[in-house]
C-alpha cells in the first residue's frame, strides 16, 4: 500500500502518526522511498510531456501574440483548419451513427458473426494508421478496379476529402462503440420492452428511452472520437497526397511548415492543435459517465 501511494496525501498523515508510536527507522525508509517514487513520476511526466509542450507554447508566444495570429491567419493555415474541420466533422458524424448502430447490434441482438463484428470493431486499435492508409489506396486508388470505377463516375476518393474521411473514420471507429456498449449492457432491455408494451414503436423507443439512457456515454465517445479525428496524422498523410491548400490538414500543415524551416507557423499551428486537445480533454472530463 505505502509503496504505491505516490500521490496519496492521506497515507502521509498516517505515517507521521506511526513514527511517533515507535518503529521510526522502518517508517523513515518507507517515507523516503515514497518521496523518491513521487519525484521519479513527476520528473518522468515533466520531461516527457510538460517540458516539450511548454517549449512549444514558449516558442509560439515568445515574440508576443502578433506572430501567432499572423501565422494562423495565412491562407494556407486557414485552409488547413477548414480541411481538418470538414474531415473531422464527417468522421465524427459517420462514427456516431455507425457506433450507436453497432453497439445496439452487439448488445441487443444475437446473430451469426456477432463475435466477428466485435473483433472487427477493435481492429483499428491494433492496425497502424499508415497501414490503413496504404490499404485504402490499394482499394480506392485510381489504378484499382474499385477506384477506377468510382473515378469514371466522377468520384475521386484518394488524394481527396472522401479518402481522408474514410481514413479518419477507420482509425476512430472503436471509440463510440466501446463507450456505448457497457452502458447499453448495464441499462438492460426491460425499459425498452416496457415502452413497447405501452405502444411505442422501435424508433420511438430508441428516441425516448434508449438514447436518453446512453446520452452521457455517447457524448463522451463523440468527444473522444473528435479528439482522435482532429489529431490523426499517419493514415491521412498517406491517402491525402499532402497537397498544400488542397488536402492539407492541420497536422500535415505543422509537419510541412517544420520541414520548410517555417518554425513560427509550425509552432503556432501545433499550439492551436494542443489547445483544441486540451479543450476536448476538459469536455471528456465533464462528460465522463459518473461512477
Amino acid at each position: 500500500m505505502a509503496e504505491s501511494g505516490t500521490i496519496d496525501t492521506s497515507t502521509v498523515d498516517t505515517s507521521t502518526v506511526d513514527t511517533s508510536t515507535g518503529t521510526t527507522a522502518q517508517n523513515g525508509t518507507r517515507g523516503v522511498s515514497r518521496y523518491v517514487l513521487r519525484v521519479i513520476a513527476v520528473g518522468y511526466l515533466f520531461f516527457l510531456l510538460v517540458l516539450p509542450v511548454a517549449l512549444i507554447v514558449w516558442r509560439t508566444f515568445g515574440d508576443g501574440l502578433g506572430p501567432f495570429v499572423e501565422a494562423l491567419t495565412s491562407s494556407s493555415a486557414l485552409h488547413a483548419f477548414q480541411v481538418t474541420l470538414v474531415v473531422a466533422l464527417w468522421a465524427v458524424a459517420l462514427n456516431t451513427v455507425f457506433g450507436v448502430g453497432a453497439a445496439l447490434l452487439l448488445v441487443r441482438h444475437d446473430f451469426p458473426g456477432k463475435r466477428l463484428l466485435g473483433a472487427f470493431v477493435d481492429l483499428p486499435m491494433a492496425v497502424s494508421p499508415v497501414v490503413v492508409g496504404l490499404a485504402l489506396i490499394l482499394l480506392y486508388g485510381r489504378f484499382s478496379p474499385v477506384g477506377g470505377l468510382l473515378e469514371s463516375w466522377g468520384l475521386q476518393i484518394i488524394f481527396s476529402t472522401p479518402g481522408m474521411v474514410l481514413a479518419t473514420v477507420f482509425v476512430a471507429l472503436p471509440l463510440v462503440v466501446r463507450s456505448v456498449v457497457p452502458v447499453l449492457e448495464e441499462l438492460g432491455d426491460e425499459q425498452e420492452q416496457a415502452a413497447h408494451t405501452l405502444g411505442a414503436s422501435r424508433f420511438q423507443t430508441f428516441l425516448r428511452i434508449t438514447l436518453p439512457g446512453i446520452r452521457s456515454a455517447l457524448a463522451y465517445g463523440v468527444v473522444l472520437c473528435l479528439a482522435r479525428s482532429l489529431g490523426e496524422y499517419g493514415a491521412v498523410a498517406v491517402v491525402s497526397g499532402r497537397l498544400v491548400d488542397q488536402t492539407q490538414t492541420l497536422t500535415l500543415f505543422v509537419e510541412e511548415r517544420f520541414q520548410n524551416f517555417d518554425q513560427p507557423a509550425a509552432f503556432a499551428a501545433a499550439t492551436a492543435l494542443a489547445l483544441l486537445a486540451v479543450v476536448t480533454l476538459l469536455l471528456t472530463r465533464l462528460l465522463r459517465p459518473k461512477d
Binding site: Q191, Q193, A194, A195, H196, T197, S201
Partner: peptide, 17 residues
C-alpha cells in the same frame, strides 16, 4: 407488443429512470 394493448409490469419495475 406495441399493438396488443396489454399492460405489463416487470419484476424489477423497468422504471424509466
Amino acid at each position: 407488443p406495441q399493438r396488443r394493448n396489454v399492460g405489463f409490469v416487470f419484476q424489477h419495475y423497468a422504471a424509466f429512470k
